[in-house]
Design a protein around this nucleic acid. Structure first.
Lengths: 204, 204, 204, 204
DNA sequence: TATGAATGAGAGTTCATTCAT
DNA sequence: GATGAATGAACTCTCATTCAT
């Protein structure tokens, strides 16, 4: 009698894993069905198209991500702390939705044109606004360097975080928080040795 | 009026552009043919298959890239200079082979399994060796920080450079050298403001 | 109303008929589909490929044929009876698998090179062994003539039987047994009139 | 200045060889061109289509064959000698036009429908008339057996000769005349041993 | 005579999707 | 909820043929 809410989720997770591994276009619904243990046709009882699976995967991930981002942005933290919180939140989402993140990175660019995926462009604009605001207020407050192109810096920070999804394996030796800390250290303090590194650990 | 030794190249460049924009699997040979100004079937006069176009695009790019990397690695530079030279060479290649780089990033992961694209895995191992060696000798020489996970740093530097291909547009306001300089500054010195930034420009 | 375990068979029989009539290469899967009453693409729900249909047709025929031949060869008949039994069995198979036999004759020569159809060469060798053994023991026993090249005779008997598939129509005026009897009479006794033919029918 | 009459012939012979080996439909004009040492497009300087090559091969063979048959039929031989002469003429043609004969046997059945190849049906009817007349006059003269179905006997004799083309290799150990003699002996006298075989060789 | 490049029709095959059971 | 069979559009690729050079 239960409509089996778990089955849907399970199929969707399977689909996400396969999409992430092979690419959306290169994945056939049969492969998803095989991996989920039913026949291709049966998927259409749960979803009305392959595209709608993709849609649900991506929008689910973005919803979850924005919930976290909004919390951070609403907290009124100082620029450095805000940036740290955004990065940490991002790595936590990579940890939880690794497949979705990988799909997002591979497919989002050419999906944004389709009306159905208009929210991808919205999200993109949202990211840009959030990061830029954080960076600019950091520059204003004297937390961040002035001599860098702020758009370039924005891209640098953004990419720096998200590409980690392409190699990060949940359950590996690094926790998302640990990775976030190291990434933040590199982004903020740089890779080159300097005096401060000799005397004390630059990250708390 | 020459019967076109360049026709092959022109078709290949077109294919690369379309692959980069839409993804390899999502691109049809008709789209390539349309963009190149001939019929789909006519492509097969010049190339064996869609896959062999991809092959030629990727291997051409990697050959070119390794030629530059090898020159840098053979120069015996000090770690900081070596890293700077590798980054600059990378941005120059991104500038020259933007489409190929984008394709490489999107498709290489799932292509490495196929024997035909085995050289992708070779290249990957080569990158790893080159970057790690550079970073490790920099750590040993006191140029780079000791408190960072070197593998993590390798991935950070590597990805940080290559994702730029996803937004970089040749002919824009930044030359590859200029972008390389700013990236290097961020990677080496960090984004956060510190004393040295106040008094003088740490790069050039 | 059964969902059709017979559908596969029916499609395969249709394919065999079309292959026999037009030749394998000249037959399109669309023609097969039309004749079977479905769309071309739907054939691939039942079969892997056009080639696998051919494979199944030929191997099915050869299996059936060898079942009969083995029975005859294991019976330990005297050479004349053995030859008669092989010929009769052959005509019965022609009657039952006319299309497959026609395909076998037209296509087998150039298929034997392909690994997938290696069993065709095996069958060929098996035929040769069976017929030669029968003929040679008949020569030894004094049943068959000594003055003929035994390999030439083997080919004569073999071909003489199988080409009949090219004009034989099941359900015509001659039963396979009747045709076998007349063929055997011609092969064994010849077409020319001789004394024995004047006085009595040499074959009962 | 010579239009190179030899080149045409050479290409046509090459085409015949390839058609015979692989089947007409399975042969591409490129394969013919490769084997003849020019490019596919260049064939169309000599012939106006692939089909016209086939046409020329088959009609050339049939013209040659009928020239010989007509000579035999016009000679007013007695039935046995006439049959012997036809069989011998056939084996000589197999020897001279092996490829054409093989093509004729494989392809003629489904070509007869096409208007262009109407002469194949004519030839078929001509064969039937010639052989039947010979056999019937032999039956009437007491040379051939009465107790056999004359149409079946016709097919038997006809097939018996022509399938030899499928294995005969010119320049092998048997001359066409030798093969004709043995075939005639089998067809006329049979394979079974009888008194006459013990005392003298039935064929001169 | 031959080449190189292209055409255009059609081949085998794949695949998302539908639907009666 | 799931299956088995089918659809129909689109795909990659092949190939006979054309034609300017």
């Amino acid at each position: 009698m239960r409509p089996a809410p778990g089955r849907r989720r399970q199929i969707l997770d399977t689909a996400a894993r396969v999409f992430a591994a092979q690419g959306y276009d290169a994945t056939t619904v049969r492969q998803i069905a095989d991996a989920a243990g039913l026949l291709a046709g049966s998927l259409y009882y749960h979803f009305d198209s392959k595209e709608s699976m993709l849609d649900e995967i991506l929008s689910g991930f973005l919803d979850s991500l924005w919930t976290r981002y909004d919390t951070v942005l609403a907290a009124g933290l100082r620029p450095r702390e805000s940036l740290a919180a955004l990065v940490t939140a991002s790595f936590r989402e990579i940890d939880r939705h690794r497949a979705a993140v990988a799909i997002y990175q591979k497919e989002s660019r050419h999906l944004t044109d389709q009306p159905r995926f208009g929210y991808l462009a919205d999200a993109q604009r949202g990211f840009e606004r959030a990061w830029l605001r954080t960076l600019e207020s950091g520059v204003a407050s004297g937390d961040f360097r002035t001599d860098l192109d702020v758009r370039l810096t924005y891209r640098f920070v953004r990419d720096t975080v998200w590409v980690a999804a392409s190699w990060y394996r949940p359950g590996g030796q690094h926790s998302p928080e640990e990775i976030a800390r190291q990434y933040l250290s590199m982004v903020l303090e740089g890779v080159a040795l300097r005096d401060s590194h000799r005397t004390h650990d630059p990250h708390d």
